Amino acid sequence: MAQPKAGSKFYFDLWQICLNVVLFTFNLNKMKHKVSRLIIISMVCIFQAAYAQTRIEAKEAPRHIKDTVTACGKVYSTKVIQSTGMVLLNIGGYYPNQDLTVVIKAAVVKQFKTPPNIEFSNGQVCITGAITIFKGKPEIIITNSQQIKKAS
């Protein structure tokens, strides 16, 4: 049987714990305001899972294909594709030796006050998203400007 990827097991364990807590709460017969407590506990579990991302260094990206992670690293180079308005950020190395490519499509580029190729150039960033492969290299496609932040 295949071993779950790093990060996947964490989500499974978190959801299993939350489910057990919810079921335990639901089965208590003498609990006052049972429905209210059930709703509160369910919401806590959902928010915990939503914000519990696996944090990795950009060089670890190849080991997390199909995982949703927060990947951090230095932006070594950027490229604006003039024909589409798309911006590429090369994290962890200069193209073509980058550890991770961040793809920011034109519609998302418009969400930034400062163009991302300028705002993040030569800085440390953290990007949250699903890692996919494009032409043999890991990438994260940004669908919202909130997915990328300057690292502190």
Results as ranks from 00 to 15, higher is better:
residue 1 M to Q: 14
residue 2 A to F: 11
residue 3 Q to T: 15
residue 6 A to W: 03
residue 7 G to H: 04
residue 9 K to A: 14
residue 9 K to C: 11
residue 10 F to L: 15
residue 11 Y to C: 12
residue 14 L to S: 14
residue 14 L to R: 03
residue 18 C to R: 08
residue 18 C to N: 14
residue 20 N to W: 06
residue 20 N to P: 02
residue 20 N to Q: 11
residue 22 V to A: 08
residue 24 F to K: 07
residue 24 F to I: 10
residue 27 N to L: 12
residue 28 L to Q: 11
residue 30 K to D: 01
residue 30 K to Q: 01
residue 33 H to S: 06
residue 35 V to G: 04
residue 38 L to Y: 00
residue 38 L to K: 05
residue 39 I to T: 09
residue 40 I to D: 01
residue 42 S to K: 08
residue 42 S to P: 03
residue 43 M to R: 01
residue 44 V to D: 04
residue 44 V to A: 10
residue 46 I to M: 09
residue 47 F to T: 14
residue 48 Q to I: 15
residue 48 Q to S: 15
residue 49 A to Q: 05
residue 50 A to C: 11
residue 50 A to T: 05
residue 51 Y to M: 07
residue 52 A to L: 09
residue 55 R to D: 07
residue 55 R to H: 10
residue 55 R to S: 07
residue 58 A to W: 11
residue 59 K to I: 06
residue 59 K to S: 13
residue 61 A to G: 05
residue 64 H to V: 05
residue 64 H to N: 06
residue 64 H to Q: 05
residue 65 I to V: 09
residue 67 D to H: 09
residue 71 A to S: 13
residue 73 G to M: 08
residue 74 K to Q: 11
residue 74 K to G: 05
residue 77 S to I: 05
residue 78 T to E: 11
residue 78 T to W: 10
residue 81 I to F: 08
residue 82 Q to W: 12
residue 83 S to F: 12
residue 83 S to A: 13
residue 85 G to T: 05
residue 89 L to I: 03
residue 90 N to A: 03
residue 93 G to A: 01
residue 93 G to L: 00
residue 94 Y to G: 11
residue 97 N to E: 01
residue 98 Q to W: 04
residue 98 Q to D: 07
residue 101 T to K: 00
residue 103 V to R: 03
residue 103 V to E: 00
residue 106 A to P: 00
residue 106 A to M: 01
residue 109 V to Q: 04
residue 110 K to L: 02
residue 113 K to N: 14
residue 114 T to K: 01
residue 116 P to V: 01
residue 119 E to R: 13
residue 121 S to H: 14
residue 122 N to P: 02
residue 123 G to S: 15
residue 123 G to W: 11
residue 124 Q to K: 13
residue 125 V to L: 06
residue 125 V to H: 03
residue 129 G to C: 10
residue 130 A to R: 11
residue 131 I to V: 10
residue 132 T to Y: 13
residue 133 I to G: 02
residue 133 I to K: 08
residue 136 G to H: 00
residue 139 E to M: 10
residue 139 E to Y: 04
residue 139 E to S: 09
residue 140 I to H: 07
residue 141 I to C: 13
residue 141 I to M: 15
residue 146 Q to T: 09
residue 146 Q to R: 14
residue 147 Q to N: 13
residue 148 I to V: 12
residue 149 K to F: 06
residue 149 K to A: 08
residue 152 S to D: 15
residue 152 S to Y: 15
